[in-house]
Design a protein around this nucleic acid. Structure first.
Lengths: 384, 384
DNA sequence: AGAACTATCGGAAACGTTTTAGATTATGAT
DNA sequence: ATCATAATCTAAAACGTTTCCGATAGTTCT
């Protein structure tokens, strides 16, 4: 039936089980078990890229010597080093970072999770991160959670699997359970929370200057001699609503003026919500003469609505926003806005992360606040 | 002087060379060489994350069994599999993708090189890439070349070192030497060229519909009954100038009208250049009654300039652009523009790349063209 | 010419995983 | 019980590096 691979006999060879899906045979004569190996000509694993072993063989020396040569270790003959370096060029050798990572225990990769890469704000944040990273040996794996909690969880898993040296995360709106972050902390993987933060963990956070920035805007409106300054906020539960409203109130307090609750309206960041909010304000017995929108798009829409009603901006109504955009400088009139600094936000976050990776210690302050800049434009120049 | 580590004697121990920077000793009595190891309590390499070995030890079985259990191999006892899976959860095991990559020979990482992540166009392209990638086992390393040739070269090196399974690249403006791409090809690493392409390599390319899109814009202008349609292009050497001008000319040809060279001006994408171009056109004995800008920003600026001169848009002058942006819908009048589809550009590119990684073969067509959409707005509604 | 010393090399282990190849134990039929 | 067969396990190699531990050949003193 089946010839024995060892002694060549056919008698005495019996089937003896199935192993890994293949028939196994046993030869009684020579006490030998075997399966037929269908020599499958697998794809070559090595992508064909040169390895240190190729260099060693090429020069007839050992791999350890090649390694020491390439890494500028001192117990190496300068001449050998020269030879190795030349061979590396000739064979177009690129060190295998995967192998290095495995050996050294760190990957030189940092993971970044953002909820919306398409948004100019996050795009700028990423640019800031790259600004710093481009001068280091690190690379970044960018994950897009697309405002989905499930994806955020998955991405964190993946990043841990890639054994990233650290993680930067800006949470999705839809995440309310933060076990995934706790797991990262448990594994002692450095992690920094940017912009969309959550306070329940003892990790460094880097955020916008929401309170001060909003205060600046409102102070500017006061300086323009507006008397009845309204605010169009977002859902009350959101931290940005709370902080930016806080800044609004702070400005009133410093000015010594009592804020009026009917001038504080809460929308939901939709166009319909804004129209509602705007109409509510304008229907007041004493409508506002200025509006501070905590959301940039609401300000743009407010300008449009005011123009429809033939309300003159900035003379009859001042409009200002928290958050800037290229649009702000191109609408008519151009929109005064507090411009946060997402680029710096990114830069500072990675810097803190890199520091934490190297020194294993947190920054002095757990929370870092990034200053922005008030862009004064035509929508508020009443008396300036 | 120095006690022998083997026999304990002090006499007969002599210094015997320096090895790896440390003093070496030799004991004549027992013929033994040694260096003092200052037991440096190195940082633990393993970040403390659970490994397959931990699971094996925890259950008292072998690592290969654990591996087979986790990978759903068939020659495994269902009970053992259950045990292993439970242990994996208990110990919060995450597979080490680095080790897997090294073993399997592919990293499940793809590299993306973009010249400007901050730009909404590329941000959208990245979003498209993520859309597809998020449904696969792949992750992406994003590299920002920041329009620098040096950085682009460096990034390609790094990606090769990371043994990425494939590369998507959109070239920097400043790159004129494409050796780095040739090296990638030589190493048989799949690579796709997106948007900012170069034609000297036999690799798949994915691009915008520059010619057809421009033609559509001009055809639309004709449909609006504009008679003297000008084009403000970019530097003549650029491929986008050539392609979009081509579209402009194609529209004229189909209409059976001879294009006039004095209505075709070449700018340089700067504000100063645009002002110059605009003035040149308007100073013509017979100025144009419509302008097609191949660069979106030039159209926005043209609108501003026309308004300054009290030229009515769209009645006296139609303005349209190649390239869309959130600004287009917010200026006054809103700007008609051909909106390319960078999201789809990204999606199609990765799909082609993933296909090439899996099947090792190029798409049927080396060049894929992504259709956009003409957004008709107020700046051209003359007779519509 | 020995002894003492230096410079430079090579072998092997380790990182965490998968896979190959074979061993061992269990089951079923006679 | 015994033999044929099946099911399930383990050891070891391999992926590409770096590093540890030592070996060896050459050099410089006495």
């Amino acid at each position: 039936m089946q010839k024995c691979l060892k002694c060549g006999k056919v008698d005495g060879v019996i089937r003896s089980g199935i192993v890994r899906g293949k028939q196994r045979y046993y030869c009684k004569s020579c006490d030998f078990s075997f399966v037929l190996d269908q020599n499958n000509p697998d794809l070559p694993k090595n992508k064909g890229l040169t390895t240190i072993v190729d260099i060693a063989r090429h020069l007839g020396i050992s791999v350890s010597t090649v390694s020491r040569a390439l890494n500028d270790k001192f117990d190496i003959n300068p001449n050998t080093k020269k030879l190795v370096n030349q061979a590396a060029i000739d064979l177009d050798y690129k060190p295998n970072l995967i192998a290095q990572s495995l050996h050294k225990g760190y990957s030189h990769i940092i993971g970044v999770v953002v909820p919306d890469i398409e948004h100019p704000y996050f795009a700028k944040m990423l640019a800031g991160i790259h600004n710093i990273i481009n001068h280091t040996a690190y690379s970044i794996i960018v994950c897009h959670s697309n405002e989905s909690a499930e994806l955020e969880y998955l991405h964190i898993e993946k990043l841990l699997s890639y054994r990233v040296d650290g993680i930067l995360i800006s949470h999705s709106k839809t995440v309310f359970d933060f076990d995934h972050i706790q797991k990262v902390i448990n594994k002692k993987v450095p992690i920094i929370n940017i912009d969309r933060i959550v306070n329940q963990h003892e990790i460094p956070k880097v955020v916008n200057n929401d309170i001060e920035g909003s205060k600046e805007v409102v102070q500017h409106l006061f300086a323009c001699k507006y008397k009845r300054i309204a605010i169009i906020a977002g859902p009350k539960s959101l931290s940005i609503t709370q902080k930016r409203t806080q800044g609004y109130l702070d400005a009133f307090q410093e000015k010594g003026i009592e804020p009026q609750t009917d001038l504080m309206v809460y929308s939901d960041f939709t166009s319909a919500g804004l129209i509602n909010a705007f109409n509510t304000l304008m229907s007041l017995p004493e409508p506002p003469d200025a509006i501070f929108c905590i959301f940039f798009k609401d300000a743009i829409d407010s300008i449009k609505l005011a123009k429809k009603r033939n309300i003159k901006i900035p003379e009859e109504l001042g409009v200002a926003a928290f958050g800037d955009d290229a649009i702000s400088g191109n609408v008519e009139p151009t929109l005064t806005a507090y411009n946060p600094n997402p680029v710096k936000l990114g830069e500072v976050s990675v810097s803190i992360l890199l520091d934490k990776i190297k020194n294993k210690e947190n920054p002095k302050e757990m929370s870092t606040i990034i200053e922005g800049e008030l862009m004064i434009r035509d929508s508020t120049r009443k008396f300036l």
